[in-house]
Design a protein around this nucleic acid. Structure first.
Length: 918
RNA sequence: GGGCGCGUAGCUCAGCGGGAGAGCACUUCCUUGACAUGGAAGGGGUCACAGGUUCGAUCCCUGUCGCGCCCACCA
C-alpha cells in the first residue's frame, strides 16, 4: 500500500500544471529531427503506400503570415494523419526565388547601404549579390514553418533556382520552343514602368480610381486639309495619349457621324491629319459615340489599328515619360512648327503631360467638357504603379494548347477540386486563356536560353555551346552570338514544381514512387497563377496529372473580411500567436475553422479557447499519472469487463471513426470538432469523474482495469489529436512512455488507432442513462438554489427492474456526482419531494425542508409548459394525414415515440405539481 | 457586364429537408486532492426579407435587400 502511495507522490511532481509550449516545442522539434521522423522512404515504410504532397513554395523573401500558417497546418494535418496510417509520406518542401520580390529586396538594401546600384555593378555581380543575400538572410520562413510543426522532409528542401530545378526549366523551355509552344512576338504587353519589365495579365490588378472623363473637340477638315468648322468630340480618361492618336472611330450605323466616315480630322496640338474610321468597336452609347484611337497605347485600339492598317505611334519610353523628340513615328507628317508646344513635353512624366494637355486644350477652346468618372485602372501587383500597354518583343507560351489536356483531366475526374465549386472557376479561366507572357526584363531568375545571331536569327538551345554549334551550322561558320537578357516569369519554374522537385527530367526513383502526388493544398488566390499552370506543365511533360486532389482552402481575412496585407496594416502575425498561445493552439484553431467554402475571420478568443483545450488535455494526463494509470503491456481493450470502461472505449471508437472519416473528406473542422468533443465533453467531463470513485474504491481488479483503460484511451487521444496538436501530444507520449512497456517510436510515427471493434451499444445506453440522471438532478438543485455542498437522498419512484439494477451498479458514482446521501426506491414519491421524470423512473428528491415550495411549483409549471408546447407540435404533425401518408415510417415511428415520452414526462410533472400544491 | 460565395445567439463561426449548435462574452453558484487557462447550472436566436416547392423548410427553388471576392477591353 505504501508503495502505491509513494509512486503517486513521485508521480505528482513529474508534471507541471501547465504545458510549457515555448520550451517544449523546440525540444520536440529536435526529437523529430533526431528520429528522422519526416524522412520519406524510411526503412519501416518499405512497401508502404506512398503519399506525397508538395508544399506551395513560399518566397525566399517571405516570412510566415497567417495564410501560410493555415495552408501548412492543413497540409501537416494530412501528412501526419497519413504517416500514422502507415504510409510512406513525402511532404516536399522548398522555396521560390520570387524574381521581382527578391530583386526588389536586394536593390533596396543596396540603396540603404548607399552601395552602387544594380546597373552600376553589372549583371554578374548583382546576381552574385542576390545569392549572397539568399544565403545570409533568405529563407527564414523554413525555420518558421518548423516552429509551426510542419513535418516536411527537410532533408529534401529545394529551391527554384537550384541546379536541378534550373535544368528542368531549361529542358521545358527548349522543348516547348521546339514544339512551337513557345514563341517570340511583338505586341502590346502590360509594362511596369517602375520595374521596367513586362508582366503577365495575372500580375495586373485593377484599382478603382475616381478620375475624370475629358471631352475633346477635334476639328474636321476637308479633302484639302482645311478646317470645315465642324468638330467631332471624343472622350478620354487619358488625355496624354492624344499625341499618339492615329484615328477617330465611329460606329458604322451611327447616323450622327455617318457623313463624317472617311473624312479626316486635324489632331490638336500635333497637327497630324488622321482619318475618321467606321468600326464596331465604337459604342454609340458611350461618351460621345466617337472614340479616339491610340493603337500603341491601348489594347482595344491596337486591334482597331490592325483592322484599319493604322500607324502605331509609341509616344512613351520605358519609364512612361513622353518620347517625342527624335521619334520618327510621331514626327511623320507633322509640321514641327505646329507641334512645337507638344514637343516641349518631351521627357515629361505621363501624368504631368496629362495635366498639360488638358490645360492646353482648354486654352485652345477644344475642351468641351470634363466629367467626374469612376474607372478601374490597371496597376502592377508588386510595384503598385499604373501599368502601361506598351509595344515590345516578348516570349509567349501558347497556353491555349497546353490548356486542352488540363481541362480534360479535371472534366474526366483525374484531378478533383475540393470544394468542387472551384472547378467552374478553373474551367472558366482555362477556356478563355490568353498567351502567357513569360519573359521579364529582370536579372534575378532563369535566363532565357535564346541566343541571337548578327542578323537576329534566334537559336534556342540547352547550352551556350549548343547554341554556337547551331549557329555555326546555320551560318556555315563560327559566329558570335548574344544571349537574350531576359529571365523567365517566376511562375514558369513554379509550374514544374511537382515533378522538378522529384528529380525530373531524370527518371529518379522518387519521381516513379511519388508522382503523381496525392493532394495539393493551396489557397484559391493562386488557382490561375499556379494550380492551372502546374496542371498544364505536368500533363504536357509527364503525361500524368500532377496531383489527384486539389484542396482549396479559404483566405484568412481580418474582422472586416478584408484580405490581410501589409499596406493595409491589418496583418496578424502567426509567430506572435505561437509565442502567446503555442503552435498547437494556433493549429487547432485554424483546423477547427477551416470549413469548406468559407473564409476565416480569425478571432484570438478562439485561439485562447483551444489553448485551454490543450491545458485540459494536459491535466487529464496529469490526473492519470496521479492515479497510477500506467500503460500495461499486453492490455487488450476488447476484454474489459467494466461497463464504464467498455463505454469509454466505445465512445473512443466512435470518435476515431468520425475523425478519420472527416479527414478523408478534407473536413478539417469536423475532424477537429469530433476530437475536441470526445476529449473534453466525454473523456474529461464524465469518464474521469466516473473513474474517481473506482480509483478510490476497494475493487482492485476493477481499479486496475480502469487504470489500464485510462492509460490506453489517453494514448489513443494523443494519437487522435496528434495531426492537429503535434507538440503537446508528442510530449505526453514521451511522458507516458517513460514508464511501462517501451515505445516503438515517436508519436509522429505511431499507428493511427484501429478500434472499431470496441463499439458497445449496451454500455453506451447505460451510461447515457447515468449521465441523464446526474444532469437532471444537478439542474434541479441549481434552479432551486440547493447549496452546492448539501447532500440529499434520492428516491427512484416506480423504478423498472433495469433502473434498479443500474442504480445499484452505479451507486457510488451517482452518490458522488449527484451529491446523494443514499439511493432508495419507492412506489410513490415522498411527500413534498421534488420530482423529475426519467426513462424508467421518476427521480424524487425529498427537499421539502430545503426548498421554496413556490419556486418549485414555478419550476414544474415552466418545465411542463415547455413539454406541452413541444408535444403539441408533434400531435398536430401526427394528426396530419399528409405526414402519415408521405413521411418515411422511421420518421413517423420516431415522432410517436418522442410524443409518448413527452406526454409521460408532462404527466409526471403534473402529478408532482399537484402533490406539492396539495 | 459576367461568375462565385456569404447574411444562424452580443462577437467569431459550425450545421443544412423532420427535435436550433460550438468557442468566446454574459448571469448565478463552486477555490471539492487533474485542470480557476477549471467545474456546475442558466439567460440569449420569428436561422436577412418576400414568395414558391413539400406532409414538413434555417436547410431546396425564385426574387429582393445587404456584404465580400474573382473574372472582363468599358472610351
Amino acid at each position: 500500500m505504501w508503495r502505491v502511495a509513494a509512486a503517486v507522490a513521485t508521480a505528482s511532481i513529474t508534471m507541471e500544471k501547465l504545458f510549457a509550449a515555448a520550451v517544449v516545442e523546440q525540444r520536440i522539434s529536435a526529437a523529430w529531427d533526431e528520429a528522422g521522423a519526416f524522412r520519406a522512404g524510411r526503412p519501416d515504410r518499405v512497401g508502404a503506400q506512398p503519399f506525397c504532397m508538395v508544399i506551395p513554395p513560399p518566397n525566399v523573401t517571405g516570412s510566415l503570415h497567417i495564410g501560410h500558417a493555415l495552408n501548412n497546418t492543413l497540409q501537416d494535418v494530412l501528412c501526419r494523419f497519413e504517416r500514422m496510417r502507415g504510409k510512406d509520406v513525402l511532404w516536399q518542401p522548398g522555396m521560390d526565388h520570387a524574381g521581382i520580390a527578391t530583386q526588389m529586396v536586394v536593390e533596396r538594401q543596396l540603396a540603404e547601404r548607399q552601395q552602387p546600384d544594380r546597373r552600376s555593378m553589372g549583371r554578374k555581380a548583382f546576381i552574385e549579390r542576390v545569392w549572397a543575400w539568399k544565403d545570409e538572410s533568405g529563407g527564414q520562413i523554413v525555420g518558421q514553418l518548423q516552429r509551426l510543426g510542419a513535418s516536411c522532409d527537410w532533408s529534401r528542401t529545394r529551391f527554384t533556382m537550384d541546379e536541378g530545378l534550373s535544368a528542368a526549366v531549361l529542358k521545358v523551355f527548349v522543348t516547348l520552343y521546339r514544339q512551337g509552344l513557345i514563341y517570340k512576338d511583338k505586341r502590346l504587353v502590360n509594362w511596369d514602368p517602375k520595374f521596367l519589365t513586362a508582366i503577365s495579365d495575372l500580375e495586373v490588378v485593377p484599382v478603382e480610381i475616381k478620375g475624370s472623363l475629358w471631352h475633346f473637340r477635334y476639328p474636321v477638315v476637308d479633302a484639302a486639309g482645311a478646317e470645315t468648322g465642324e468638330f467631332i468630340t471624343v472622350a478620354t480618361t487619358r488625355p496624354e495619349t492624344l499625341l499618339g492618336d492615329t484615328a477617330v472611330a465611329v460606329h458604322p450605323e451611327d447616323d450622327r457621324y455617318r457623313h463624317l466616315q472617311g473624312r479626316q480630322v486635324r489632331l490638336p496640338l500635333v497637327g497630324r491629319l488622321i482619318p475618321i474610321v467606321a468600326d464596331d468597336y465604337s459604342d454609340p452609347e458611350k461618351g460621345s459615340g466617337a472614340v479616339k484611337i491610340t493603337p500603341a497605347h491601348d489594347f482595344n485600339d491596337f486591334e482597331v489599328g490592325k483592322r484599319h492598317g493604322l500607324p502605331m505611334i509609341n509616344i512613351l519610353d520605358a519609364e512612361a515619360r513622353l518620347l517625342l523628340v527624335g521619334n520618327e513615328a510621331f514626327l511623320a507628317g507633322v509640321d514641327p512648327q505646329a507641334a512645337a508646344w507638344a514637343l516641349g513635353l518631351h521627357g515629361q512624366d505621363r501624368f504631368v503631360a496629362r495635366k498639360a494637355v488638358v490645360a492646353r486644350m482648354e486654352e485652345l477652346g477644344l475642351l468641351a467638357e470634363v466629367e467626374p468618372h469612376a474607372l478601374t485602372v490597371p496597376h502592377g501587383d508588386r510595384s503598385n504603379v499604373v501599368i502601361e500597354p506598351w509595344l515590345t518583343d516578348q516570349w509567349y507560351v501558347d497556353a491555349a494548347t497546353l490548356a486542352t489536356p488540363a481541362l480534360a483531366a479535371v472534366r474526366e475526374g483525374k484531378t478533383s477540386f475540393i470544394p468542387k465549386t472551384w472547378e467552374k472557376t478553373y474551367f472558366e479561366w482555362l477556356d478563355n486563356i490568353q498567351p502567357w507572357c513569360v519573359s521579364r526584363q529582370l536579372w534575378w531568375g532563369h535566363q532565357i536560353p535564346a541566343w541571337y545571331g548578327p542578323d537576329g536569327t534566334v537559336f534556342v538551345a540547352m547550352s551556350d555551346d549548343e547554341a554556337h554549334r547551331d549557329a555555326a551550322a546555320h551560318y556555315g561558320a563560327a559566329t558570335p552570338l548574344t544571349r537574350d537578357e531576359d529571365v523567365l516569369d517566376t511562375w514558369f519554374s513554379s509550374a514544374l514544381w511537382p515533378f522538378s522537385t522529384l528529380g525530373w527530367p531524370d527518371q529518379t526513383p522518387e519521381l516513379a514512387r511519388f508522382y503523381p502526388t496525392a493532394t495539393l493544398v493551396t489557397g484559391f488566390d493562386i488557382i490561375f497563377f499556379w494550380v492551372a499552370r502546374m496542371m498544364m506543365m505536368g500533363l504536357h511533360f509527364t503525361g500524368e496529372v500532377p496531383f489527384k486532389d486539389v484542396y482549396m482552402h479559404a483566405l484568412v481575412r481580418d474582422e472586416k473580411g478584408q484580405k490581410m496585407s501589409k499596406s493595409k496594416g491589418n496583418v496578424v502575425d502567426p509567430l506572435v500567436l505561437i509565442d502567446q498561445f503555442g503552435a498547437d493552439a494556433l493549429r487547432f484553431t485554424l483546423a477547427a475553422m477551416a470549413a469548406q467554402g468559407r473564409d476565416i475571420k480569425l478571432a484570438t478568443s478562439r485561439i485562447e479557447g483551444y489553448r485551454n483545450f490543450g491545458t485540459k488535455l494536459w491535466n487529464a494526463a496529469r490526473f492519470a499519472e496521479l492515479n497510477g494509470c500506467g500503460r500495461v503491456a499486453g492490455f487488450d481493450p476488447a476484454t474489459t469487463r467494466s461497463t464504464l470502461n467498455r463505454w469509454v472505449l466505445s465512445a473512443f471508437a466512435g470518435a476515431v471513426a468520425d475523425v478519420t472519416a472527416a479527414l478523408e473528406a478534407y473536413r478539417f473542422n469536423d475532424a477537429a470538432g469530433a476530437a475536441y468533443r470526445f476529449v473534453w465533453n466525454l473523456f474529461c467531463d464524465w469518464y474521469l469523474e466516473f473513474a474517481k470513485p473506482v480509483f478510490a474504491g476497494q475493487d482492485a481488479a476493477e481499479k486496475a482495469e480502469t487504470q489500464a483503460t485510462t492509460a490506453y484511451v489517453l494514448d489513443g487521444i494523443c494519437a487522435l489529436l496528434h495531426p492537429f496538436m503535434p507538440f503537446i501530444t508528442e510530449e505526453l507520449w514521451g511522458i507516458t512512455g517513460a514508464t511501462g512497456p517501451a515505445r516503438d517510436s515517436v508519436l509522429a510515427l505511431a499507428p493511427w488507432p484501429s478500434v472499431a471493434h470496441l463499439s458497445d451499444a449496451a454500455a453506451q445506453a447505460e451510461l447515457d442513462w447515468v449521465i441523464a440522471l446526474i444532469s437532471t438532478v444537478r439542474s434541479i438543485r441549481s434552479e432551486l438554489n440547493v447549496p452546492a455542498g448539501a447532500t440529499v437522498p434520492l428516491v427512484l419512484v416506480e423504478a423498472s427492474a433495469e433502473v434498479r439494477r443500474r442504480a445499484e451498479r452505479w451507486g457510488d458514482i451517482l452518490k458522488r456526482l449527484g451529491r446523494f446521501t443514499d439511493i432508495g426506491f419507492a412506489d410513490e414519491a415522498p411527500r413534498g419531494a421534488v420530482q423529475a421524470p426519467l426513462p424508467g423512473a421518476v427521480a424524487a428528491l425529498p427537499l421539502a425542508t430545503v426548498i421554496d415550495v413556490a419556486a418549485e411549483a414555478a419550476r414544474l409549471g415552466k418545465e411542463g409548459g415547455k413539454l406541452r408546447a413541444e408535444a403539441g407540435k408533434l400531435e398536430s404533425k401526427l394528426a396530419n394525414p399528409g405526414f402519415l401518408n408521405k413521411a418515411s415510417p422511421e420518421v413517423i415511428e420516431e415522432t410517436r415515440e418522442r410524443l409518448a415520452e413527452l406526454q409521460a414526462r408532462a404527466g409526471k410533472l403534473d402529478d408532482a405539481l399537484r402533490q406539492i400544491s396539495g
